[in-house]
Simulated assay, not measured.
Amino acid sequence: MSYLKLENITKSFGKSQVLKEVSFAIEQNEIVALLGESGSGKTTLLRIIAGLEFANTGNVMVNEKVMQDASTFLKTEHRNIGVIFQDYALFPHLNVKQNIAYGLRDKNEALLNDFLSIFELTEHAKKRPHQLSGGQQQRVAIARSIIVNPDLLLLDEPFSSLDQSLKRKVRSEISTILRRQNIPSILVTHDPDDAMEMADKIAILQKGEIVQFDTPENIYKNPINEYVGDLTGGINVLEGRLVRPSDTKMVPTEKGSYKVVKCSFYKGDFFITLQATDNPKAFVNVIEKYRVEVGSLMDVE
């Protein structure tokens, strides 16, 4: 039995149809990413799941409970779904511990202290949000959302305000915490790295439709069309096929001995620049799976 199930969701704003017959399901403890360009419909779909928007048609079920169908529409406050927006929406006048405890009816000190420890916020418990880093603020927002034990957690572009050096660390931390707490989650993002690193499955949205729903590996290796290939890291388009750069091999046209003058890593492969030993002005480039030391020699037959 699927934990979250969406069936034939459509949504229009005036004459503009934003979602077209969207259907997919996720299981308990899965993290699913909604990935697409701006205007693809991913945030609208998230808001429909949360009860912040009303779908024109379709059904939404969470944990075997109907959220919306032809005769039912539960308001957000009755759905037990946590939502984390881009700005985290922390209360500036409350400290970290008070922010996390905000939604609890019973201010269980032991539970609060456990969450402070889990999210590595114990030493920051008495700080106000403005005294925290972006990553720390995000951990507070997520702790506040999951301490009330939601049936589902929705994250809308949660890493967009973080710089690249912090993004990967926070993504890893949050993914670990969500899996430890056994909370199924949906991540909305336009960044393929967010989706590839965090999600068990990715739903690719294009102009309001899900064009591919699969594991990150399958989507990367077997994109269904050029849009998906470009969105998830770039492709080379050849006659009748989509090919990743990592699936190609560049070799020098001239045989002989070459000296390695540069070796750089990118997306799983090593891009190597070679200089001909008998002609210092002749350079070629090759792609290899393994690192080659600069200054070493390569024979090309």
Rank of each mutant, 00 (worst) to 15 (best):
G135W: 06
T10Y: 07
A203P: 08
Y290F: 06
T10F: 00
N59H: 02
L52Y: 14
P223A: 05
Y102W: 10
N29E: 10
V251A: 10
Q68D: 07
K169Y: 05
F283D: 00
R291P: 09
K201M: 01
D114A: 00
I235T: 12
D214V: 03
Q212P: 08
E173R: 05
S16W: 07
F91V: 08
L111V: 07
G134Q: 08
E123L: 12
N8L: 06
V60I: 15
I287L: 14
L104K: 07
A70N: 15
E30Y: 09
L45W: 08
K126T: 13
V148L: 03
L178Y: 09
H124S: 14
A125Q: 11
T176V: 07
G208T: 10
I142W: 12
K65P: 03
T277H: 11
T122I: 13
I118P: 01
V286G: 00
R105F: 03
V211I: 15
V300S: 02
G268Y: 09
D214A: 15
Q86K: 09
K127N: 09
S257E: 14
I219W: 05
A276I: 04
F270C: 10
G234L: 04
F159A: 01
I31W: 03
D193F: 03
V32G: 04
T189W: 05
R139D: 07
K167N: 02
M61T: 14
G82N: 11
G103V: 14
G240F: 07
V261F: 00
F73Y: 15
Q181G: 00
N182T: 04
V237D: 02
V140F: 04
V32E: 03
V286T: 13
P184C: 02
N80F: 04
D200F: 11
L274A: 06
Y227R: 11
V294M: 12
G256T: 04
T189D: 00
E7A: 06
S71E: 10
I49C: 12
Q206V: 02
L132V: 12
N59A: 01
F283P: 01
E53G: 11
R79L: 05
G268T: 08
D156I: 04
L6D: 04
